[in-house]
Amino acid sequence: MDSVDAAGLGIGDDHPPRIMGVLNVSEESPYDPSVFDDPGEAARYVDEELIDEGADIVDIGLESANKRFDVLSASDELKRLHVALETIESVSGDAIFSIETRYADVADEALSHGFEMVNDICGFADPEMPAVCADHDVAVAKMASPPDLERPGAVEETDWSTRKSPEWARRSDFVDQVYEALKQNGMTDKTILDPAFGGWSDAQTLEDDRETFRRLREFRALGRPLLVSINRKNFLGEIADRETDERLPVSLAATSMAVERGAHVIRTHDVAETRDAALIGSTFTDRTSATADGLTLSQLDVHSTRELRSQLRERGIDPAFADDLWTQLFEIEGLDPDSSGRLLSIAADHGAVGERVTDGRFLLAGSTTSILDISDRLTDESGRLDRLGRELSGVLR
């Protein structure tokens, strides 16, 4: 995992989780407590509510990214930039200032007058953005998006049949598309990746967000620090049946889990609370790295066959090897004696091991390949083996 130096702030596995507080100078932004059009008031908010509460980075947005609003042009954003520039000149606290924009011209102007980082919600859809960030030698957060400046985050709207292949488009799921979108349009040496949580398009579902969160570790295979923006998001609120103003507890729970799963930057409106939750997640993260006599040993973060496939694929190794390398262990309950006997027989025929623990409960162990072979052959009159086969296949594929 490569670390990124953001104007002297280290971001990566070897550094504490970083908190990105949010300031908006856009009248359209839906979160009123963070919206300002007066530089003096905005600076006081940054000092007292963001930096003093523990924000390492302050992300300033010039327009709302909400898909309900019209997209501003680069010239419109530039007209608003003066408020952001006057704000950071008036801030007394110490933080890294990030400009949220999709336009290279806006990023260039902001970086030339005091900003130190870019948050590109369109994932380098502006082809000049990587060059601008590289020329200024700044960190840049790149959100998974189609190559379209007007459709941030809407990865499923990408023509994947053309961008990848028709076969890949048919078999890919939403998280696969997010992963691939992060790779599109290249990266700079200081790129931080954002898997785009939130309802960026009508086609993106809450379950898409939940599945992205479940599989967050897979994005570590790309070797870049991760930024997540999950604060008070709908996919968390629905779980606890909470409205936006009641979602702080679920956001904090998810923050700890996100850090444990590999997130390095947490973007939030609730800085102090999020900082504490991130520190808990970091403290109990089990990730090993050691350096001695010029030798560095790093334990890769792999918790599933999917994650192992991703790590191998990004290193140019056939990901199919993962299916034979990774051993799966399942505990199964609820099968009648006839179905249990059939399952154990099929397991033995395919190089897996089945062991009855008690009546109706036993363990099944084998490589991913062997378990997938078994899942394809499970059938019985009751239909329970058919369901078991589908469940096994869904977990492993």
Rank of each mutant, 00 (worst) to 15 (best):
M257C: 11
N66R: 14
V71S: 06
D14L: 12
A134W: 00
H15E: 01
S367F: 05
G354Q: 12
D209Q: 02
L385S: 08
S345D: 13
V175I: 14
A322Y: 00
P225I: 02
T358Y: 00
T101C: 05
D76S: 14
D301I: 02
V265R: 05
G316E: 06
D47I: 02
D148I: 12
G360H: 09
F321N: 15
F97P: 02
V58L: 01
L312Y: 00
T101Y: 03
A322G: 15
D14I: 11
W200E: 04
E116M: 00
R163M: 07
S310E: 07
G223C: 08
A55C: 13
L81V: 01
N185H: 10
Y45Q: 10
D37V: 11
A6P: 00
P147D: 14
A43E: 13
A348I: 11
R313I: 01
V250C: 03
F213C: 04
D386C: 10
F115Q: 04
S98F: 00
R242P: 10
D148C: 08
G8I: 09
E333Y: 01
I346Q: 05
A320V: 10
E391P: 03
F321A: 15
A240H: 12
G199V: 08
L252S: 12
T87W: 02
R214S: 13
A278M: 12
L236C: 06
S26C: 12
E150R: 14
E238P: 13
E314G: 06
N185M: 08
R356Y: 08
A139D: 01
V395Y: 05
F174H: 11
S64L: 03
R390E: 11
R397N: 15
A42P: 12
F213L: 07
V46D: 06
L300M: 14
D318P: 14
S367D: 02
R217A: 11
R163S: 05
I192K: 02
D318I: 07
L343W: 07
E150C: 10
L300P: 05
D135G: 10
F330H: 12
Q299R: 13
D105I: 06
L378I: 08
E41I: 00
T369N: 04
T188Y: 00
I239F: 08
